[in-house]
């Protein structure tokens, strides 16, 4: 069943004459993991932001259905509560806000939306320890302020840690693999694979074929100039690694 159906999505920047997405079509089934690749500035993060509900972007045309419902109707926090999670390309620092407080509020607001009871402090702390262990996240990081002074790689790991804590139904990873060392890459991949239990969908935005060796995608899409220019199976990543994006551009031009 389709978890996410994006149809003919056109997106611009609010109050400005800028168009970034020019008719994106993409369907993600429950249980599936799709990768999105494509050159810098082609609109990958914009798509992720629109899915998460960032207000600076304006949907000019098209639709997004999530679980059969109109996703665009929901506020960002309602989307999060409905199970949409975005691992940010550039995670934000929240000075003085403790990881524990932040995550506890987040986890409990998502649980409440699902009709689950709040976790007790003990349960919560235990879950935190477990998930941090699973991802090889230094326990000290969970005692600090959210992302404050974290290294680039630590911030990325922290995004996956939050993903593991919130157990979303739709997880969007925006270049989570960039800036990770090899060990971190493996533990992030392990984390994702553990959550790949057939009940969720994943969109993994990446520039590198390497992560796709650990997290094997069901499908790969190439975003160019705000459109999905080409889709293929996992082998497409290798072709891209070898030949770059230019040939796709030429193909698209020839077809037009």
């Amino acid at each position: 069943m389709a978890l996410l159906e994006i149809e003919n999505l056109h997106v611009g920047v609010e109050d400005e004459d800028i168009r970034i997405l020019n008719g994106v079509d993409l369907t993600l089934d429950t249980g599936a993991l799709h990768a999105i690749m494509g050159p810098n500035g082609s609109g990958k993060s914009t798509l992720a932001s629109v899915l998460a509900g960032r207000e600076e972007y304006e949907v000019l045309e098209g639709s997004i259905r999530y679980d059969g419902e109109d996703l665009l109707e929901l506020e960002p926090e309602e989307r999060a509560e409905a199970g949409v999670f975005l691992a940010f390309q550039y995670p934000v620092e929240l000075p003085g806000v403790s990881m524990t407080n932040f995550l506890k509020e987040a986890v409990n607001s998502v649980r409440e939306a699902r009709g689950q009871e709040e976790l007790s402090s003990t349960e919560f702390l235990q879950q935190m320890r477990e998930r941090a262990d699973m991802l090889g996240l230094d326990a000290d990081l969970t005692k600090r302020s959210v992302n404050e002074g974290f290294s680039g790689g630590e911030k990325k790991r922290n995004e996956i840690f939050q993903l593991a804590m919130l157990e979303p139904r739709l997880a969007i990873l925006d270049e989570t693999d960039s800036g990770l060392d090899i060990d971190a890459l493996q533990s992030v991949a392990n984390g994702v694979n553990k959550l790949r239990d057939g009940s969720r969908g994943f969109l993994v935005i990446t520039h590198y074929e390497r992560i796709l060796q650990y997290i094997v995608p069901d499908r790969i899409h190439v975003m160019m100039d705000g459109q999905i220019a080409r889709s293929g199976d996992k082998d497409l990543a290798e072709t891209l690694e070898e030949h770059g994006y230019e040939w796709i551009r030429e193909e698209v031009a020839a077809a037009a």
Binding site: G53, P76, A80, L94, G96, F102, S109, L166
Partner: peptide, 28 residues
């Protein structure tokens, strides 16, 4: 920051909760 607020919203926190967290953090 709008970025900070959005980050909190993305984790399921509403306007008020997000603002409380950020201001409390500022004063920590």
């Amino acid at each position: 920051g709008e970025d900070q607020m959005f980050y909190c919203h993305q984790r399921g926190l509403g306007e008020e909760e997000a603002l409380k967290l950020i201001v409390n953090g500022f004063c920590q």
